[in-house]
Write a protein that binds this DNA or RNA. Structure first.
Lengths: 218, 218
DNA sequence: CCGTAATATTAGGCTTGCCTAATTATTATT
DNA sequence: AATAATAATTAGGCAAGCCTAATATTACGG
């Protein structure tokens, strides 16, 4: 089994690969994990020996298929636990990340399978992020950033790209929840503020930063 | 917060103190934890500095009040998670120990409070062991070993002192479950075998070893 | 009360995963 | 292409928790 440290590297590498394409840089990973580059180099050499990453000195690295599957397994656990925390224990969506960060390192395939069944095989976590199935397959769902929509178009709010408490609390405050229909009424050219119509009634004005953190589907 | 290793020491020391009275020996702890004595001495010095144990060189040691409360907190988490695993996820009582052993090290007071409420504040875990409340208080319940009963007496089966899979499976096999009424019909002087009447109907013969691992109340 | 067995501690080492400082590669700039 | 800036690696260390081997302490039988 992999150590918690290794699992955190796997998750982080996966995330960077998803975001920036193929090769991941030592510096990017160090920044994301909040540790120094030398430590990353250290660990990558070890993970390379274990065939979790393909590592080319001074060039960059990427997950092997083995590493990719391991990473997806951890993401699956993290997101299932988040669903549990919110749906069953009554946590708010902005409170669950740190706890799930610990729970994702519990080692038991049986546990995660039973948890999945208990939660009725959820497809997304409380932030709208997709949950891979037991085989590591994500249900494909094409979404776009709200900031990419032009005035007049609309869709359903299905996810966020910013998972911070501050951002999630802000959404609660303006009354925007996952699943809500959102229409772009107007985009102010000057400051890029977006005027949105929520659920066909409430009108709110949000910054580009916010519009660029909301995922819209359909 | 304490490390997982420290928490395992705390739990083990607590257990030994409960079983054998006051001072705990280095060797006993080493054996229980499956590590070497030198390692125990190492760790105890550190835990002593942290005021978790009162440590007298070459004499023995015991938990401080701070250590005792920490130990009880871990036991509480372990047992609540066991209830969750059995009652909610459908694990059998002989399968949950190792998973709970991991889950007990998750750090979040909020989590454990919410879990407790979700499980409806259970008083005992799936093996009949008492669960301390949020203040660290155990509901007192006086039970005796079945091996201490004389023929003719009876009571309710409320706990085990052997938590091994092998033993628990054996109880399943002979059809003995927590809460069942058990009557001692006969004790064979020669080999100390116990003839029991389960739930007023089924009669079974068990060894002294088994009788000495069953807790009876009322 | 003395020697031996049993217990406990000290000393020195190892692995994991991190650190700082120094060095080497790579990339960008003029 | 030479130099400067940025990125990456190497070298040497440290704390946590474990180990083995050596030493010290306590307990016990005669």
């Amino acid at each position: 089994m992999h150590s918690s440290a290794e699992e955190n590297y796997l998750k982080a590498i996966y995330k960077l690969q998803e975001a920036n394409g193929e090769l991941v840089a030592t510096s990017a990973l160090a920044q994301l994990l909040g540790i120094h580059m030398a430590s990353v180099t250290d660990m990558l050499k070890k993970m390379s020996t274990k065939k979790l990453v393909a590592y080319q000195k001074s060039k960059g690295f990427k997950l092997t298929e083995k590493g990719r599957l391991a990473a997806i397994g951890i993401i699956r656990k993290h997101r299932l636990w988040e669903v549990f925390l919110v749906d069953k224990l009554g946590f708010r969506w902005d409170e669950v990340h740190d706890i799930a960060e610990q729970l994702e390192h519990i080692h038991s395939q049986d546990l995660i399978d039973k948890l999945d069944a208990y939660l009725d095989f959820p497809k997304t976590d409380p932030h709208g992020d997709p949950i891979p199935d037991a085989k590591g397959v994500f249900a494909i769902s094409k979404s776009v950033l709200l900031a990419a929509l032009s005035p007049g178009s609309q869709g359903k709010f299905t996810g966020v790209t910013d998972h911070s408490s501050a951002f999630l609390n802000y959404l609660d405050k303006i009354g925007l929840s996952l699943g809500d229909t959102v229409k772009v009424k107007e985009v102010e050219a000057f400051d890029k503020n977006y005027t949105l119509l929520l659920k066909g009634k409430k009108s709110v004005v949000v910054s580009f930063k916010v519009a660029n953190s909301l995922l819209i589907s359909e």
